[in-house]
Nucleic acid binder design. Structure first.
Length: 274
DNA sequence: AAGCGGTGCAACCGCGAGCTT
DNA sequence: GAAGCTCGCGGTTGCACCGCT
């Protein structure tokens, strides 16, 4: 089957919207809603008599203009520090799922968040990576951040690294694993090292090999929805011998650890107090 | 004042999911 | 079940604006 073109190529306008076009679109949607975007341009001719050819835009363009710009509940203006912090945290968690991030930021659109990320936040985070690595790990960090450009190591890890510096120093590189990229890595030779989890407390050290789970999207989604969690990241450190060690942000250690256990169908364990 | 490069953002494109016929 | 359609998403592009030389 040949997919029908999005819109008639002939006669439909592209490029920036004029105020007149905006008014037609707003007027139509206020009166009739937007049940069918494709039909909207043709139907708009009935509403705006002075534009005999209706709205010369394809439905897709109309939808985009409405959802990204004309919607009355859109918050205009610069992002606050709180909003930027939220984007960073949500991006750690959700990856490039801009619509999911936007759903947690009232008044902001996915397009807007995507733009902010690419123009401001990504650069800032990259600068932080360079700043916080003044030893031989810097090249590897950058290399991995390029491969997984959406999951670079991020703000907040600096503090985390200070806490667990003895372990972090041994790694050749550090990556952040999110639901989106967790399946991209070969964990076949991975081991968990609970001494990382426990901050090196000897009584909990266990370096026995464990096959790490390839996270099922459903597990993440379900857990995150249930916990209503704006969580910090799970951090994997790649050792020099390419084995994998697990480190967990201390703020949500129980959650992440239990998530791992759940993914592996391992009974939940009690973790020590820190 | 003109030219140029960088930046920010609106808009477009292609694709896939899900629904309808 | 296949074909066709609509919608939404993420990646990318194009252009206006701004600051610097």
């Amino acid at each position: 089957m040949v997919r029908a073109p999005c819109c008639e190529k002939m006669g439909l306008k592209k490029g920036p919207w004029t105020p007149e076009e905006d008014q037609i679109l707003i007027g139509y949607i206020q009166h009739f809603g937007h049940g069918n975007w494709r039909a909207l341009p043709k139907q708009a001719v009935n509403l705006i008599s002075y534009l005999p050819s209706g709205l010369l835009r394809c439905g897709k363009s109309c939808r985009l203009r409405w959802t990204n710009y004309l919607r009355p509940d859109i918050k205009r203006g610069n992002f606050s520090n709180e909003e930027e912090e939220a984007i960073i945290k949500l991006h750690e968690l959700l990856g490039n799922r801009w619509s999911a991030i936007a759903a947690r930021l009232p008044g902001r659109t996915d397009n807007e968040i995507k733009n902010v990320w690419h123009t401001h936040l990504k650069k800032r985070l990259k600068a932080n990576v360079v700043k916080m690595t003044n030893d031989g790990t810097q090249e590897d960090l950058i290399e991995i951040s390029q491969i997984n450009s959406n999951n670079v190591t991020t703000r907040g890890q600096e503090e985390h690294m200070n806490i667990q510096e003895p372990h972090i120093e041994a790694y050749s590189s550090i990556i952040t694993v999110s639901p989106q990229n967790s399946s991209e890595f070969d964990f076949s030779s991975a081991t968990t090292d609970s001494s990382v989890l426990t901050g090196g407390k000897e009584e909990y050290t266990d370096s026995s090999p464990v096959t790490l789970p390839e996270f099922d999207e459903g597990i993440w989604s379900e857990e995150l929805r249930r916990e209503n969690l704006v969580a910090n990241s799970v951090i994997w450190g790649f050792d020099f011998d390419q084995s994998v060690k697990l480190s967990v942000d201390d703020n949500n250690m129980d959650f992440w650890f239990n998530l791992l256990l759940k993914a592996e169908n391992i009974p939940t364990l009690e973790l020590p107090e820190f």
